[in-house]
Design a protein around this nucleic acid. Sequence first.
DNA 1: CTCGTCCATTAAACAATGTGAATGAGCCCT
DNA 2: AGGGCTCATTCACATTGTTTAATGGACGAG
Lengths: 241, 241
Amino acid sequence: MFGKDLLVRMLDRRDTLPRDEIALIEALPVRPVTFGPDEEIVREGSRPAESCLIANGFAVRNQTIREGRRQITAIHVPGDFVDLHSLLLKVMDHSVSALGSCDVVFIRHKDLLTAMGGSPHLTRMLWLSTTIDTSIQRTWITCLGRRSAEQHLAHVICELYVRLEIVGLASDQTFAIPLTQAELGDVLGLSIVHVNRTLQELRAKDLVSWKDRRIVILDFQRLALLADFDATYLNLFHEPR
Amino acid sequence: MFGKDLLVRMLDRRDTLPRDEIALIEALPVRPVTFGPDEEIVREGSRPAESCLIANGFAVRNQTIREGRRQITAIHVPGDFVDLHSLLLKVMDHSVSALGSCDVVFIRHKDLLTAMGGSPHLTRMLWLSTTIDTSIQRTWITCLGRRSAEQHLAHVICELYVRLEIVGLASDQTFAIPLTQAELGDVLGLSIVHVNRTLQELRAKDLVSWKDRRIVILDFQRLALLADFDATYLNLFHEPR
DNA sequence: CTCGTCCATTAAACAATGTGAATGAGCCCT
DNA sequence: AGGGCTCATTCACATTGTTTAATGGACGAG
């Protein structure tokens, strides 16, 4: 529990985790904390001695720039080891904050190092989880740079659906996520007004419905085609790593 | 040599590499290959059994989208372990190609695993190198999403200068890089025409000169201020990792 | 030398996106 | 019921960026 089961599920989707490695993860001491909407989980500029794993709810990473504007560089779902990289980066160059109410568990770097010390494969699996994050970010770069606002939004919706499905939080073409249009703008790099316009376009084409924090994908196939969505980057292959 | 000295230099800038770990790196068998301009080093969709390190020259990662358009998601300089992540990702979701003439060395995954097997710290240092890539990508996302074309271009120039300085390829506010305006457009997510306009703006402000594949930064301080450039994300801190 | 090619540059029309302001729906608080 | 909030929506207009096309310089091949 405490989200560690979801982490195992997320990793096990990519390569079988042997019993002893699962045991190492389950044995990690955790410090559970619940954050309210918009509360800061990890502060920019801080030097964390622990990493946090999402047990329930959502979190975003954001970089702030001058004049209070910000860009969300990642959306994290339950099972994501949000700032595992702080283990290596030491100083946070961005912050992590809760999207809606969010339960996380903190795990000390010290304990992580101990657990990984005896298991090169477990180390690689955790490394893999950061690598998948990177892969997602590459795709976001492409969406930001070379796709239209409409394609980009469609792409984000497809991605969230697939990622949430892995941890059992999406099915039947629908999922819940507490994302306002303003926050969506910070994800897409668009103004609120344009997010709204873009959302209308997808609605007009009967591709999605987005209401009361719940998204329904009316035609995944057409949505994915419009977005040019190809799930390869999510690394859903189960194989030796 | 073969670029491994640069890799060591790049890592050693972040945490002292003990002699035995340097020896492990130096002992890695390499397969050197030289690529011509625009040649593909790693192909999208392939399943590499080796990772490549840049010894000399530059390489870019790019994702292609419909109609031959593309987005460059990273620029790699000598010393960069370009597709170290293929060790874990297995299937490439993007390609890597040479920018100008580029010498790389390929290192078998098998040999990397062996070298890392006995050294958790070396493993972390290599992991760190992929994590720095991620950090750079996060910053690119922010540039794409929330900064003006002018700021974005200025930011890229500042970043390249700092990164090249580490490996001794930039000094006195100048460095050479074989990047055409079309390619720059694929980095910034802009049209060629707009890249040109944006470059003119920086020239008009006497911030940079960009001619014959050589960039001269006329006023780093003002350029960094304009770009809102903060080098924290490049992790230039030397400390235990 | 001359042709062809690559690259940088410019112009003008057009499309995409941002800004600022106003409105209304829903909801919590009292 | 009323007030004050957040959020979604819409409008008019400003700004930024794209597209297409044309031009000229540099350079290598023949």
